[in-house]
Simulated assay, not measured.
Amino acid sequence: MRTLDFAPLYRSTVGFDRLFSLLDQATQTEASSAWPPYDIERVADDAYRITMAVAGFAPDEIDLTQHDTTLLVTGQRKSSEGGRQILHRGIAARAFRQTFNLADHVKVVGATLENGLLTVDLKREVPETLKPRRIPIGGTQAAVGQDNARPRIEAERQAA
């Protein structure tokens, strides 16, 4: 197994701690993290979709929890043998726990379970205060908003 030493990068970078932690976790993933199989796709510039194959699970047996930048998907089958005698079990009914690390400002906007596929829709919603803004050079005007437009009330006050 390959191990990576991020110590030199910690000395020369600022604010990338979370990135290095994610890389460290990725190098130590377990084989069980591949169950159930899943796809991650980009459906638009700021929209993503996770599709998981969860055949045999009902919607009330699957739990989705987002805490900060972590999405946790767990599945626990309820016993439904009902006196049946299974001669061969090919459909996996084992419980699962899958964790996805999300980028900042990515939120779950919906989830559906159809034909044995759990689809989780995600969207990046960057707050206005964190979007880029223009900074004027010189002068005493403060940078306001995204395009430096002064608020209407202030402009009317100066015009009067």
Rank of each mutant, 00 (worst) to 15 (best):
Arg2Trp: 09
Leu4Phe: 14
Phe6His: 03
Ala7His: 06
Pro8Tyr: 07
Tyr10Val: 14
Tyr10His: 15
Asp17Trp: 05
Asp17Tyr: 08
Leu19Ala: 13
Leu19Cys: 09
Phe20Ile: 04
Leu23His: 07
Asp24Gln: 14
Thr27Val: 03
Ala34Met: 05
Ala34Ser: 08
Pro37Thr: 13
Tyr38Ser: 07
Ile40Thr: 10
Val43Gly: 01
Arg49Asp: 03
Ile50Cys: 03
Met52Cys: 05
Ala53Cys: 05
Ala55Val: 11
Gly56Pro: 04
Pro59Thr: 03
Asp68Pro: 00
Thr70Trp: 06
Leu71Asn: 02
Val73Asn: 00
Val73Cys: 04
Gln76Cys: 00
Ser79Ala: 09
Ser79Lys: 07
Ser80Ile: 02
Ser80Pro: 00
Gly83Glu: 01
Arg84Ile: 05
Arg84Ala: 14
Gln85Ser: 10
Leu87Lys: 11
Leu87Glu: 13
His88Met: 14
Ala92Tyr: 09
Ala92His: 09
Ala93Cys: 07
Phe96Ala: 01
Phe96His: 05
Arg97Thr: 04
Gln98Pro: 00
Thr99Gln: 12
Phe100Thr: 10
Ala103Asn: 14
His105Glu: 12
Lys107Glu: 14
Val109Ala: 04
Gly110Asn: 10
Gly110His: 12
Glu114Gln: 15
Glu114Pro: 00
Asn115Glu: 15
Gly116Tyr: 08
Leu118Cys: 02
Arg124Thr: 14
Arg124Phe: 02
Val126Arg: 05
Pro127Phe: 08
Pro127His: 09
Pro127Arg: 09
Pro127Asp: 10
Pro132Met: 01
Arg133Gly: 15
Arg134Ile: 15
Ala143Val: 15
Val144Trp: 04
Gln146Phe: 06
Pro151Trp: 05
Arg152Cys: 00
Glu154Met: 02
Ala159Met: 11
